[in-house]
Design a protein around this nucleic acid. Sequence first.
DNA 1: TTGTAGGCGTTATCAA
DNA 2: TTGATAACGCCTACAA
Lengths: 369, 369
Amino acid sequence: MAEGPTINTIARHAGVSIASVSRVLNGLPTREETVRRVLRAAEELGYVPNSVARSLKSRRTNQVAFAMADIGNPVYLAMVREIQPVLRAAGYRLLLHSTDADVADELDVLRGLGERYVDGLIMIPLRVTEGHLSALAAARAPVVVIGSVPEGAGVDNVRTDSRTGVRLALDHLYGLGRRRIAFVNGPADTVPGAARAAAYREALDALDLPYDEDLVEVGDFYRAEGARAVRALLDRAGDVDALMCANDLIALGALDVLRRAGRRVPEDVAVVGMDDTDLAAVAWPSLTSVSLGSARRGRAAAELLLDRLENGEREPRVVTVEPRLAVRASTVGARAAEEYGENGAAGEAGDGGEGAREAGRTAGEEGIR
Amino acid sequence: MAEGPTINTIARHAGVSIASVSRVLNGLPTREETVRRVLRAAEELGYVPNSVARSLKSRRTNQVAFAMADIGNPVYLAMVREIQPVLRAAGYRLLLHSTDADVADELDVLRGLGERYVDGLIMIPLRVTEGHLSALAAARAPVVVIGSVPEGAGVDNVRTDSRTGVRLALDHLYGLGRRRIAFVNGPADTVPGAARAAAYREALDALDLPYDEDLVEVGDFYRAEGARAVRALLDRAGDVDALMCANDLIALGALDVLRRAGRRVPEDVAVVGMDDTDLAAVAWPSLTSVSLGSARRGRAAAELLLDRLENGEREPRVVTVEPRLAVRASTVGARAAEEYGENGAAGEAGDGGEGAREAGRTAGEEGIR
DNA sequence: TTGTAGGCGTTATCAA
DNA sequence: TTGATAACGCCTACAA
């Protein structure tokens, strides 16, 4: 761990000034003889430029941060997987912040931009408070927010459209002849919780189905909670023939409970999840799920940020990613599901940007394919 | 995005020297009046110290990098989830490198340490070449390697023991009365592939079971390949009564094929995976899997690195994480599996360090629980 | 073509 | 207790 050589060391070694060293290293016009001597010295000494010093001078770190609640969440994970290569290709390193869905943490991250340890930030706030808006306005580096943010927040914004998403699912279920379509939501006081609840009512309306309180259960966005909620639902409304779940984990819990209750999926009860995570394809029966385009949102966010880093002064932009329905066995049965193709959704990563990259052979430690 | 204030700005504002500003900001003894003026100016100007300048001076970045093949891989993901909070608690930011399992990339990361953009590195090399060894020896910052590394490599090292892992699985299967235990491996020329192949032979030996070439199939570490391999196996050795799969994805592929072939799991064929990823608990039937302690390995690596950052000169240390068997339905049946507890393995995160942290409510975008 | 010198924002030393 | 000043490693006018 010897102290590394600096341009000073090289200058001495090569018998030139540090300015010449810098010039050579940056490819500025220099006498050939000098170039040779500098390069040789650099080579011999194993010189590597100090990025911190360079950053201080250039005011760029070539680092970008991504802040989300928890990297263990498959939705955020899908985003990271897209964000990382895009940034990397542009020469940026990726820094990860797990905010644990804590508002104070999120605000800290925003204020932390003043430390200038990154050139920009992609963030998914749990919810958007007043504090967020003022912190965003005062941010000392470009920020891209994933998740809806009010007009005039002054930041680039990537959204999805859960309204349409829920609508796709309910239309699908309706088309399959389902009429008693229950809804299992997460907490109503979260942004997505509220949005999805509203979307459910709207979709029912559009289909001319009555809104029945007995068919709605609110729990949390976890598997165990999903199970609990579905048990409650079945007790209360034994005639449900479809479950719209506010995310895939809830849906997995639903599958567990239905299986134990002896209800066949999808014959007796069809189940739809949301987010179209990797888990949907692994579940049995495989899970029909509304894709909210996590990967595409991640990619879009990265691209917006890069663009803004080149071009700091353009107007803030809003990108909306359209939801899709990934049809699988939990609504149409295993046989039909195969006809839809292996996973229903048409290439989540979109536009030739392949989501699941070839990872070579990691031997027992591989991503899903 | 106005240029931020520096200690110079504050000094002018407060009518003191930059030295005084620095002192106050660092809590060094200062006259109270001066403290007040500096703090007020800092407050008014919204001063935030520039971490780049600070790093240049202090020669510490408070950043640590984690380099693995692909963050989408559930095994690495489990590691990141442990590494992140440990580092964060110690005041370090986490930087992510996806090497795509490319040796050249890995070496680049090691050489890149010379840029001093991080204080240390945790890395999982795909395989350990000569190049790795010399790059490790020349590394300009402390490195912790996850995965076996030869004695004398001079770096901290976290390992698992796949030998024992496979042994646990085969003992379990044997105990259930299985005698025709096939093995589905990934490429034999990878480190884990080779290790697991050897472990399988050894475990057979220990059980006095014959090694039967027909019972071994080599493919890749993916679900589709696992499916292919198992089809081949069934064609060739229809009497297999158990499948030892070299990772969970292969095992998932196996479940698909068995289901289609009308073989009941576990009644006709028991299936064991490896790595005990989140997917194992989601699969149906839920998958018995050898846990190689991904989370614990991650945590151990982070702790080793932190220790070394405090104490640069101690001897390199080797930590070995013991494998465990997570028994689930794919070997003992759904009913019995429940008696083992929800997922068989006794708290993978170990030692009170809870792996699956409460993530609050992320509303539709949650990790598995 | 090259070298000297100043500055990026901090910290730390040394006089005053 | 405070201020001037010199680093940290690099880049870049500007002068030679």
